[in-house]
């Protein structure tokens, strides 16, 4: 008797979960269809969940950051209201696969446009021009890039920024690599490293965090150009045009500047003008 109850329960759970997954996949299909045609009612968008200032999931379950604002604006122009957006985490190494499998409609996740990536996915935009920079303890800035060679830098293992240090601008600098930028901040605070280096947008996000305000400053060196694009499935020119139009409008009606000030304002970070759209079909 007990056994029968248990198996009935298990069957019920199984049936429920099956219907739930069926619903889920239906939604996804509608979402990706909507992304293309612009009249769908939901979208699945990939963002970073752990990057203050760009894409951050708050403990309350909200999403904040510049990438989130841009994505919400684009979705609005595609006819999708913010509450119908499903946010999906897009870690750096996963971004191409998420687009190829169709798990997301597009990705707004500090995604630099590079030639290697363009072989796998397409881009719209860029919507933002980031530069590699240094985050240092307040009052310790460097005046010229040659001085970087004497510093101990910190960045994320394998990241483009970490490779730039050795390959380009500071071959003699010591480089500490960690899994996340937050771990670098511990060393920066204790003095074990002199600077955290990556895109200035990411650094500004950390400097603007409440617990870090006033402790750290950007050095203001433009060590590289990182054009952030919106990642879309390879060859989807229709979606590319729609997103490009949305980005242009966002820049024209002032919401772009507003989003910059809201997300990077506390870091005293002066973003340059919005970049020209380069990714057209």
């Amino acid at each position: 008797m007990k056994l029968r109850k248990a198996s009935a329960l298990a069957a019920a759970v199984l049936a429920l979960s099956l219907t739930a997954t069926a619903c889920g996949s239906n939604d996804d299909d509608e979402g990706s269809g909507g992304g293309g045609s612009g009249d769908g009612d939901s979208l699945t968008i990939g963002i970073k969940f752990d990057q203050p200032g760009l894409g951050l999931k708050t403990p309350e379950g909200d999403y904040t950051g510049f990438d989130v604002d841009v994505a919400t604006y684009i979705a609005g122009k595609l006819g999708v209201s913010p509450e119908n957006i499903e946010w999906v985490e897009a870690p750096s190494a996963e971004r191409e696969n998420l687009l190829k499998r169709g798990d997301v409609d597009f990705i707004v996740a500090s995604y630099s446009i590079t030639d290697e990536r363009k072989e796998q996915v397409s881009f719209a935009g860029p919507y933002f021009m980031a530069h590699q920079d240094l985050l240092m303890r307040a009052g310790e800035g460097v005046s010229n890039p040659d001085e970087i060679n004497d510093l101990t830098l910190c960045s994320v293992t394998g990241s483009t920024s970490a490779q730039h240090v050795h390959d380009d601008f500071a071959p003699d600098a010591q480089l500490q690599e960690f899994g996340t930028y937050s771990e670098c901040l511990t060393g920066l605070e204790s003095g074990a490293v002199d600077a955290l280096t990556t895109d200035d947008s990411i650094l500004a996000g950390y400097a603007a965090q409440e617990q870090n305000q006033g402790k750290f400053e950007l050095a203001g060196l433009e060590l590289s150009d990182e054009p952030y694009g919106v990642g879309i499935p390879h060859g989807d020119t229709e979606l590319q045009e729609q997103i490009n139009d949305a980005i242009r409008e966002m820049e024209e009606d002032g919401s772009w500047q507003e989003a910059i000030e809201r997300n990077f304002g506390p870091a005293n970070y002066e973003a340059e003008e919005a970049p020209e759209i380069t990714e057209t079909s």
Partner: peptide, 12 residues
């Protein structure tokens, strides 16, 4: 090295 290559080559 693996994470470096994935970052550059986009082929997980």
């Amino acid at each position: 090295l693996m994470s470096e290559m994935i970052e550059n080559e986009a082929q997980l």
